[in-house]
Each structure stands twice: as structure tokens, then as C-alpha cells.
Design a protein around this nucleic acid. Sequence first.
DNA 1: GTTTAGCACTCAGAAAGTTCGAGTGCTAAA
DNA 2: TTTAGCACTCGAACTTTCTGAGTGCTAAAC
Lengths: 356, 356
Amino acid sequence: MALSERRKKILRAVVEEYIDSAEPVGSNTVLSKTGLGCSSATIRNELVALDKEGYLEQPHTSAGRVPTAKGYRLYVNELMRERELTHDETEAINRGLDMGGGNEKLMDAVGHMATELTSYPALTISAAAAVTVKRVELIYLDSNSFIIVLLLTGDTVKNKLVHLPFSFSELLITRLSAVFNSSFTGVTEDRITPELIASTERAVGDTMGLTSVIAGFLIETLSTSKGGASVSGEANLLKLPEFRDPEKAHKLINYLSNSENLASLSTSPDFGDVKVLIGPENAALELKDSSVVLASYNAGDNMRGIIGVVGPTRMDYSAVAAKLAYIAGGLSKLLGGGAATNGYGKLMIKGDDSNA
Amino acid sequence: MALSERRKKILRAVVEEYIDSAEPVGSNTVLSKTGLGCSSATIRNELVALDKEGYLEQPHTSAGRVPTAKGYRLYVNELMRERELTHDETEAINRGLDMGGGNEKLMDAVGHMATELTSYPALTISAAAAVTVKRVELIYLDSNSFIIVLLLTGDTVKNKLVHLPFSFSELLITRLSAVFNSSFTGVTEDRITPELIASTERAVGDTMGLTSVIAGFLIETLSTSKGGASVSGEANLLKLPEFRDPEKAHKLINYLSNSENLASLSTSPDFGDVKVLIGPENAALELKDSSVVLASYNAGDNMRGIIGVVGPTRMDYSAVAAKLAYIAGGLSKLLGGGAATNGYGKLMIKGDDSNA
DNA sequence: GTTTAGCACTCAGAAAGTTCGAGTGCTAAA
DNA sequence: TTTAGCACTCGAACTTTCTGAGTGCTAAAC
């Protein structure tokens, strides 16, 4: 059953007020916020109705109302006013994205920026469908050491300095370089078999195991480059009244510091959209009292990234979603070589309605 | 004035009990801990004396005693029993150090290990006297892009993929490579002047500004490689009773998350030793209620690193110091190509006695 | 049927009061 | 110098009281 206009207005007022104050909202507050031309008694009647329908609840009789997850859901889906970013905000984001640097550094910086902008912990997740090596370069340093440089899909560059206790010739390194470029490029991790390594070893006449060293680094690099997740700004939780109990904060922070947990957040197939997961909509127990807002972006070369923030259910969804959408749009443009499907920074919220 | 044997025993008992329990220690507890053959009244008399001399204090009349910074200082300098690491502990550390990986990754891993081992936030700081580039390699990819690979003193390798909106020849890249290797190696950041860049540009016939791009990356790399600091495991503070107030934890975490703050901790010229800074001995206001334990190591090539932990003044100094000393020793061996001055893992505590 | 004034009622949280006991300092005797 | 003994202190925990924001209901007004 659809809600009357008035009830919607009231629900919106309760949600927005509660987001601000973190305290149960009473009928008088609603009255003054909505400017509805009726008395507080009327509002109370409406509140009872919203309560019955499950959009609001009371922490205890004779307290004001607090939105339920269902209430937030409706708010996010229908009631929320789209928040335009200020010029300063878009400027700040553009500047932040501009600073270049390696891929990982960029993600780090983006995470910090999201934290800065929203004052919630931010998370960045990236996942590649299939990473392969595009180019292998070996740099001979001296008879005991050389550098491996790998160019991966997604234009990430990885390197490693190898130092060995025995000597080898520059010629061997050159030969290895050529062979690796012909046999190991465009190949996914699982295709680098012991057999391939052994045959390469024979082909190049490597009796010292250099081939395995290099192949080992390839495998390691490919497997660690498949994706990653990190958080920043966890300490911001401590400022929030819902985490007045350090125990609670600790639990959530612990959960977030495990990158496997984070990675599991990325399952949702949203692209170019912003996704909001409210309280119990989260699969993880540790997030049942919190909300997560995620925006995904196209990182090129079949890579997909997600940037998000975690906060209390009482979160300024509208501002957070707008900021993340803008950042994600910028990243798509920067990395994916094109705008996101919905256009750069266009806010298009898709919720998880399964629980609503 | 030197303390009598009995008073030392009592002081030690108070400190160790308080480290354990975080609660003021009474005369009866001391009695049962020391097994001293006297009555609690005698202990009380001694406690009053220790109180008068400034080693202990009472949170309020009729509470037990708590060590002062001076008390901890004496404990650390004279009373503390050296803690031997268990086989499991040394094993764990050795394993942790073994896992190789790039320099930064290693430091990250070491920080996490220190956190794991001590359950306090750990910090890693590194500082190089003068970083220079040992070798420059340019890898031509296509007419619009190439990779810069830099080998720095300390055997760190840095790279960057450069993508430009105009074409250049492979020949130019090769020439640039040669010139950079001859003119820019062994040179500190401040010696890379606009004049040098301009003359290089002329020498190599670069009209497109590639030289500046590469030199810019050199400068950037040299300046960011001079040192760095990072923290891990901040959330561990939340478990401690002294940080029951989230506000307090937040302040400290904030302080620690600023790497400049961390860097300023490294001023103390200890080498191969473990340094303990107790509460007010810390220069920073934010650390006045906390203690910091630092161990430094030789990272080779004139680089010096520090690994440390931050915790409440009530910290198990002996265990923490032993663990850090062992880690630092291992790092010296691993990176510096030799044992620390005091031998691998030998514990040698040097305090800051200026305030004692 | 909807709205509103009016009022009794509820209940968390603050404030004030009470109890409890660990631990003290002091005294006087050993 | 040590110790038994004892009055005293004071925070922590628990109880009680007070307060007021906010409710739900009723009955009259629109």
C-alpha cells in the first residue's frame, strides 16, 4: 500500500532529523521541520500509522520515533532528495583524482579522499576478471642480480630485484627475457604449469633455476594482482555516538581490516550505479547495525573497482551516494577510458530490495 | 639515594602487578606477590616511602598504588628481568621476516607482525641519509608509452608507466636511457636542477619534454624515498581499559595516523638498542599518557629503520622490548648485510634518563 | 471522517542518597 | 623496626527519587 503524501513528508522529516541528531524524533520536532499545517496530535496519529506499517519504531514507549531499516529503505528509494555536490566538493575530488601515481597509490589516495569527504571509513576493492602479463623485461645488473619488470593488463607495472648466490651471464638474462615475452605473455596464472617452466628451462639452457625464480614471481604477481581490498579512516567510527562503546567499534574495525570480508562485499553486480545496503540487508553479522554504500567503476582491461564507505544506518545517504558516484565516475573516466554507463557522476541508486 | 633491596622488590611487584591488572595495587597484593616475610603493615610503610620518593602514587587516598613515570623508568632501567623469547616466538618472527617481497611490503608485514606479537599498534619508520639513483632503465612499449625503472640505493626498485599524447621513437628512449644513466646516477635530489635537465634535453635532442618527465619522476621518487612511516593495528588500543573513552583513543590514533608525527619520533640516535619512552618523557602532548618502545636496525646503504610500538604506560616493557629487539636484529641481518652492533637479538635497553 | 485540545500516563536518564569494602594511616605494643 | 589493631576514607556499585519529553487516548470541534 502506497503512503499518503503527508506520511511521506513525515517519514522523510523523521529520517533526516534522526540522521542529524541521532536521537529519537518526537511529534513536535516533526511539526516544526515539515511546517505541516496541522497539530502535533495529528502528527502523532500519523506516526502511529507509520509505526504499524513498520517504517518507524520506538526505542521505548514514550520516546520519539526512530526509522527502521524498512524506513531507511523507503527513504533511500523514494524520498531522498538528490544532493548536488558543491563546486568545492567536485573540485576537491577532481584534484584528488588528478594526482596520478601508481595504481595502488591512486587507490590509496582515493580511499583517503572518500574518508575525508564523508568522514566515514572508506573501502576500495578491485577485482580483475583475468590478469595476464603483457610484457616481461629483465634488467641485468651484475653477475649476481637482475630486476624483473612486469607490465600487466590494466597497465600496472610490478618489479622485483633478484639477488642470487651464484653467477650468471648477461646473455642468459637476455635470452630469458625473449623467451618469457614469447611464452608467458597473455597467459593467466593457472596456465603457468611446472611443465611450461621445465620446457622453458630446457629451451633457454638454464641450469641454475633462474626460470623458476622468474616464473615464481609471475605467479605470485598474477595471483596478488587479481584483486585487493583495503580500508582507511576506520578511526572515524569513534566519533559517532553509535560507537560510544569501544567494544562495538573494535568489532567492526576488526571485521573491516580483514580484506576477505571486504572482498565479499563486492559480489553485487552493479555497474555505474550506487548501491546502498542498509543494516540487516547486509549479509555479514558484523554489519547488521551498519550501512554500506558502494559505487563501482570501470577500471579498464576487464578490471572492475568498487569504492564505498561504511557507517551507521543513520547515515547521510544522499550526500555519501552523490560523492561516491562522482568519484567512481571520475575513476571510470580516468582508468576505463570512458564514462560510466550512466554518465559521469550521474546518481542512480539501486538498492537491494530483497529485504524491503 | 639508592633504594633498599626490599623497596626495589616491592616496586617491582607493584609495577608488574599493575601491568597485569591495570588496577591500583594494595599492600596485601604486594605481600603475596613478593612472598616477603613481613606483614602488610610493613609493606604499607615501605609504600609510603616509595610514594614520597615519587616512584608511586595513589589515584586517591585509600586506594592502592600505581607506578609513576619515574617508577616505570626505574623499573625499566634496573628492575626489569630480561624476558627470553620462547622458541615459538622466535620461530614466528623468523618466518615473518623470511617472506621476502619488496621493501615496502616487507615493512608492512613487519609492522603487522609486531602488532600481532605485542597486541599494540606498531609503527615502522625508515630514513635514508641520502638516496640516489643507481641505475635508470627505460623500457619502450609503443610510440606513446614507456616504463621508467629506477634502482635506488638500498636496492629499492621504483617504476612508472608513462603515457604521452604524442609519438616518440624507440631510439630517443634508448638515448635518454644512456644519458640518464651517465648524468643522473649517484646524484641526490637537490642536484637535479633545471639547468641539468635543460642541458640533458639539448644533449639528447629531446624537443618533446620527455627529459623533464623522467627527471620529474626521479625527483619525486628520491624525495618520497627518503623515508616514510606507517602504523598498523591502531584498533588494538580499543581493547585496553585506558582507552575505554573513545575520545581518547581517537585522539591518539589520529596523532599516529599522521606520518610526520611518527617521523619525529625517530630523532633519537639509538642504534641496535631498544629505546623506551615513558609517558611524559615523550615530547608530543598526545603521547604523554602513553609509552613508546623503539628498536632501530641497519637497513643497508646508509638507511636506518625503526620499528616500534605504542601502548599505555602500563606496558609489558620486558616482553615488548625483547620482541622488538629480535625483530630489529633480524632486519639488520636481512637488509644491512650484517648483525646489529650488539649482536642479533641481544637486548640492550637505553632509556631517556633526562626526565628521570 | 478528520483534526485538535486536553490530560493522564510512561519511562529513560539525571541527580541524590545509600551501602559496601578494599585499602589506607596511625598508634601503641612487641 | 616490625606488627597487630582499628578508625577512617572514598570510589564503585547499587537504589531511590525526580524530572520532563513524549506518548496514547478521549471527547469535542470542524
